[in-house]
């Protein structure tokens, strides 16, 4: 049997402390231990980006990380981007621009976009495309996702 170990991190602004198997992936801790099922698994090999979360502000595929690799880090999942009454401008923009179809890629797309805009509030369309190029979407053809992110950048809104 694989032993357990203590795992501590800040997840969506809250301190979390758990005993977890050492080989557990970050995505499994988020989904199965913390009930944060907004983080989606699409491929399990880091190819699709659906499981993207922010670790200290940087986007990572949570299917490729062991939870213990992000010990004591600050983790943001889609559930931490907003509450129902207070959407992040990117979330509003995704709705307004029709950037959401099936919605499975949406959490990852939003978090990658947030990481981009936090660092570069006024990216070009090309910079947006490069930023989301690790995130697959099978429904939209990406146009409206790029539009939605551009619109927030143009507004210059930053949080």
């Amino acid at each position: 049997m694989i032993g357990t170990k203590s795992f501590e991190a800040i997840v969506n602004g809250e301190q979390v402390k758990l005993n977890i198997p050492q080989n557990l992936r970050l995505i499994d801790v988020l989904r199965n231990y913390l009930g944060l099922t907004g983080t989606k698994e699409g491929c399990g090999e880091g190819e699709c980006g659906a499981c993207t979360v922010l670790v200290d502000g940087e986007p990572y595929n949570s299917c490729l990380l062991f939870a213990l690799q992000v010990q004591n880090k600050n983790i943001l999942t889609i559930e931490g981007l907003a509450s129902y009454n207070n959407l992040h401008p990117l979330q509003e923009s995704f709705l307004e621009h029709g950037a959401v179809q099936c919605g499975y890629c949406t959490p990852g797309m939003l978090l990658v976009a947030k990481a981009l805009l936090d660092k570069n509030p006024n990216p070009t369309r090309e910079e947006i495309k490069v930023a989301i190029s690790g995130n697959l979407c099978r429904c939209t053809g990406y146009s409206k996702i790029v539009d939605a992110i551009s619109a927030v950048a143009e507004k210059g809104v930053k949080r």
């Binding site: 989904r31 944060l36 099922t37 907004g38 983080t39 989606k40 698994e41 999942t77 889609i78 559930e79 981007l81 907003a82 129902y84 959407l87 979330q91 995704f94 709705l95 307004e96 029709g98 959401v100 919605g103 499975y104 949406t106 959490p107 939003l110």
Partner: peptide
């Protein structure tokens, strides 16, 4: 009219429940 998605709110907030959820 291009009204936003009926179920869009759940999808942008991570609350939409796919079967594995």
């Amino acid at each position: 009219k291009s009204l936003p998605r009926y179920e869009g709110l759940g999808k942008v907030t991570g609350q939409a429940k796919f079967p594995a959820d």
